[in-house]
Each structure stands twice: as C-alpha cells, then as structure tokens.
Design a protein around this nucleic acid. Structure first.
Length: 481
RNA sequence: GCUUUUUUAGCUCAGCUGGUUAGAGCACUUGACUGUUAAUCAGGGGGUCCUUGGUUCGAGCCCAAGAAAAAGCGCCA
C-alpha cells in the first residue's frame, strides 16, 4: 500500500528512505536547487520536495504545475522555515506530464466561477480539496450518528412511479422514443408501453418510502440523491442534490425537534474535531471573502467561531404564530422594509426568515406548527383549533445565511384524516394505496425530517455557493462533467 | 421564471467624452540568482474586446436582439 503525504508529514523519523506520489502545485528554482510543492489530496498540507543537481535537467523541465510525480529520496528535517520535514529527492519519475501552457490551474487565486468551469480539475486546489474532504467527513458523521442511535440505513428508490408529494417538478425516466412515441386512443403518450409499464420519474423525496420502513424497522434514514426539475437559479439550489431523511416511529413533533438539534450539533462537532486543518483553510478563505464585502454586509462571526457557536448554544424554538407576532412587531415591518407583507396564514419569505435568524435571535431557529394550508398533505393536523386557523405539526430549521436547512413534521397517522386531506389537495388516493395501507394496518405516531446535505456542507465550509460544495453540480443549463 | 449587474490576453482586471498600433499584474517563455515558501530580478511572445445586426467618416465604448455567468427574488432541502 502507498504511503500518503499526510502520513509522511506526520513522521519525525528523519534521515530514512521515503517516497511520495502526488501532483505538483508549484516549482521554484534557483541555480543549484529546485523546490517542488507536492500534494496528493490526503491532506491540505503540501510536502516540499528538494531537487538538487543530481536530478536530470530534462526531468526538471517537465515538473510543472499539474504534473504527477513519483519521488524517491530521503525524508529529513527541513533546512527551510516553512515546514518541519522535506523529501530530498534521489530520483523523480514523471508519472504524468502537464503542459504548462495549457494546464488551467495556476499557483494563484482563481475565481470560483472559473474553477466551476474546470470542475474536473478543481479538486486539486487547496480550497476544493478542503471542501470535499469535509463533505466526506460530514457524510461519514451522519452515518455514524444514526448507526449509534440504532437507525437503519434504508435505501429508498431513485426511480419512482409516484408523483404524490408535490415537492417539485420531476425529471421523467423513459425508454420510449422521443420522436413518435406510442400513443393511446386519446393521443397521449402510452406509458403502458414504457420500460416500467407506467409513467416514472426520478425521486424528489424518499420520505414516503422511508415512512414505510419506519413502520417495520422503527427508526430508519435515507441518504441518497434527489432530483428536482425546478428552474431554480440561486446559490442554494441544485437540480441533483443529496438528502438525508430520517423517519422515526413513536416520535412526536417535540422528539423530532430534539433529534434534529442533537443531530446537527453532532455532525458539526464531528467536523470541528476531525477537519481542523481544512476548516482553518476555509476560515481564512472566508475572512478574505468577507473583506471584499461592504462592512454592513459582513458576517458577525468567523467560520470557526460560527460553528462553535451553533454547537454550544440551544436552538431557538417558536411557533409560526409567535414568529408572525415578532415580525409584525418588528421595526422592519413598521418601517415597511419587508418587500412581502406579513400576516397570519402567509408562507414566510426568505426576508422574514432571515430577519428572525440573523437579526432577532442571532442563532438557529426551529419554527413549528405552521398553518395547514401552506404545508404538505401528510403532516399531522393539530386538534381543537379555530376554523381558518388550523395548524399542522411541521417544523423547519433555519440557519443563518443558508435559510431553510431542514424541513420536517410529525406525520398524520389517522387514516380518515389523511385520506380526506389527500382528496382535498387533489391527489388520486389510488396512487397512494401503499402509503395509506400503513395507516390502515397498525398505524403509529411517527415523525421525520429532510436535510439538504449540500446546504449542511455549505454551512460548515462557509462557501457562498452550493455549486461549490458538490463535485459536479447539476443546475439549469448545466450538466457538464 | 423575474430584477439587477457582468462578459476585453491562459487567469484577475483597467480601458477617460466614440478617434492612430487595446494595456497592467499574474501565468507562459528565455536568461540571471547558493535554500525557496504563490521566491526574486531582467528580456520576450500572447487579443474573434461573448455573438449577430444596426448607428457613425470611425465602435471595446452608442442602439437592438440573442447567449452565458453572478447576486437577489420566487419554488425548496
């Protein structure tokens, strides 16, 4: 097995033979000595290779940024100041050349837009190396958290025949010919001729299937790709993203809120404990980006400070009704600063959520018990409420800068109420017979939530655009790589 | 999808009121330099000014249409 640069850098066992393989970040030369900065992705830190006269000049010429090297030499304490150890090369083998005139990644700061257009190479940069290592660690922490809690990883299908949740426009999945597909008698596409014998799409949510799992296994979670064909052009939306959806039998809304808070704190703490080097790099990058902004638009905390704060402070919990009260009494409302008017019953806009999180409470907020009319059909209806003021047991977790990071609810377990609500919103109950069956046979109170994985990564890395926290982003008009 | 902004060298950008041969830093290249840290110093090469059409004696600059990108909004995770 190969030794990584991370392992070598941790070693103080000097004056021994060692090897390193990686990609050249930079080469500096003077008359008798060359210094090569090499990185293999195992850590954000680079290793310094010292190449003396014994290395052939023709080989040195091919050691340009981007080239891949295998270096054999002596690991020794560094004579220079920037690093503890350095690898003095006896032999350098060029595994892969990189033409210096064409290789796009230079040893300098590039814009995120440029690197997005070079997404196939951006994992070789310091920032993106850090982002993707943190992304991995967060994914691992999520699995570890649920595993420790006795949850089962439940694989909900990616191709689905149900268009029930109404979470967004769906991508169709079909093997029928685009031109002249088979038609039914009333001139519609005849999906009975299609691969699955029915109209199918990519999933917009694994929740309904997760509920089925929870009704047998108790506590389950999904963690998989999710697809929404919405023409959303923002720094917080992707057409293909990864979502975590735990679903728990015998959880009431308050248990759901307890879980989501504990869960978010756990995974953020995991990153703080296990991604120190990478977070320091991003903390620095965050500082630089903030300095470009106007003073009034700058964040109050640095990245590391913000993550510590979230881990160490309780989230604010309040009902939708209380939130509306706060908004109505806010100076922003009185001075008519809100673009969208607030009143009980309207869906809160980004500006309202931001006001609550960033101005009023200055901490993560869990909003709960929303009006029934603005939430999905499967949410549990509260009882004994005034007509026109009915609420459901929904909860959204709002984070500073990100907005809604989690949406969840206690589910309606009453068969009659659920069926009535399904009909009310215009869904054909026949399409959801399997979902309704869980309420028919041994129904149980249960709850769950959905976490947008990239929004979590966005928050933890402090990056500004969700397209920069997934290796190959899919957005409207972009499916390259 | 809507609003605003942007598009000039490989990258990041400047380009005045429309006026001769479009500039800078970095990168690249050649050379110098006894240990550098995005090394430094000196020389050199490098342009479909996003596209199409228009106005004008003359357009990187003005007008129109289109494309792409970014920020904000909507939809949401």
């Amino acid at each position: 097995m190969k030794t990584t640069i991370k392992q070598l850098l941790q070693s103080t066992d000097y004056n021994r033979q060692a090897e390193a393989k990686g990609w050249v970040r930079n080469r500096r030369s003077s008359k008798n000595v060359n210094f090569i900065t090499l990185n293999d992705g195992s850590t954000s830190l680079n290793i310094q290779i010292v190449a003396n006269e014994n290395i052939n000049e023709n080989i040195l010429k091919e050691i340009n940024a981007g080239a891949c090297l295998h270096v054999k030499g002596t690991w020794q304490a560094s004579q220079g100041a920037g690093q503890a150890g350095e690898l003095v090369a006896d032999e350098i083998i060029i595994l892969g050349k990189a033409s210096p005139e064409n290789y796009p990644i230079q040893p300098k700061a590039h814009s995120f837009e440029f690197l997005r257009e070079n997404a196939h190479l951006r994992s070789r940069t310091t920032t993106f190396g850090a982002v993707f290592r943190i992304r991995h660690n967060l994914a691992f922490a999520i699995h570890q958290y649920f595993h420790q809690k006795g949850f089962y990883y439940w694989h909900s299908p990616i191709i689905t025949g149900s268009d029930a949740e109404g979470a967004g426009q769906m991508f169709h999945v079909s093997t029928l010919p685009h031109l002249n597909p088979p038609l039914t008698e009333d001139k519609k596409v005849d999906f009975s001729e299609d691969f699955f014998g029915m109209e199918t799409s990519l999933t917009v949510s694994g929740q309904l299937e997760a509920e089925l799992g929870a009704m047998g296994l108790g506590n389950v979670y999904t963690f998989g790709p999710t697809f929404r064909a919405e023409n959303s052009n923002t720094s917080r939306h992707l057409a293909e993203f990864w979502m975590i959806e735990p679903e728990m039998a015998f959880y009431e809304l308050v248990d759901n809120m307890d879980l989501v808070e504990d869960f978010l704190k756990y995974v953020i703490k995991y990153a703080l404990d296990n991604c120190v080097e990478d977070l320091k790099i991003l903390d620095q990058k965050f500082k630089e980006e903030e300095e470009k902004k106007k003073k009034e638009e700058r964040a109050e905390m640095g990245l590391l400070e913000k993550l510590q704060f979230v881990v160490n402070n309780p989230f604010e919990r309040l009902t939708y009704t209380e939130a509306v009260e706060i908004l109505l009494n806010s100076p922003a409302h009185k001075k008519k600063k809100f673009q969208y008017p607030v009143s009980w019953g309207v869906d809160l806009q980004s500006e309202h959520e931001r006001y609550l999180v960033e101005k009023h409470f200055k901490k993560p907020v869990i909003l709960n018990n929303y009006p029934k009319t603005i939430k999905a059909f499967y949410m549990k209806q509260n009882e004994g409420e005034e007509v026109g003021k009915e609420t459901v047991r929904a909860m959204d977790v709002l984070f500073p800068q990100i907005g809604e990071i989690v949406g969840g609810s206690q589910r309606e377990e009453d068969y009659d109420k659920l069926l009535a609500r399904i009909k009310e919103v215009g869904i054909d109950p026949n399409n959801l017979w399997w979902y309704l069956d869980t309420r028919k046979f041994g129904t149980a109170p249960h709850s769950g939530f959905g976490l947008g994985f990239e929004r979590l990564v966005l928050f933890v890395t402090g990056m500004g655009n969700i397209r920069d926290v997934i290796p190959f982003p899919r957005t409207p008009k972009n499916a390259s790589f």
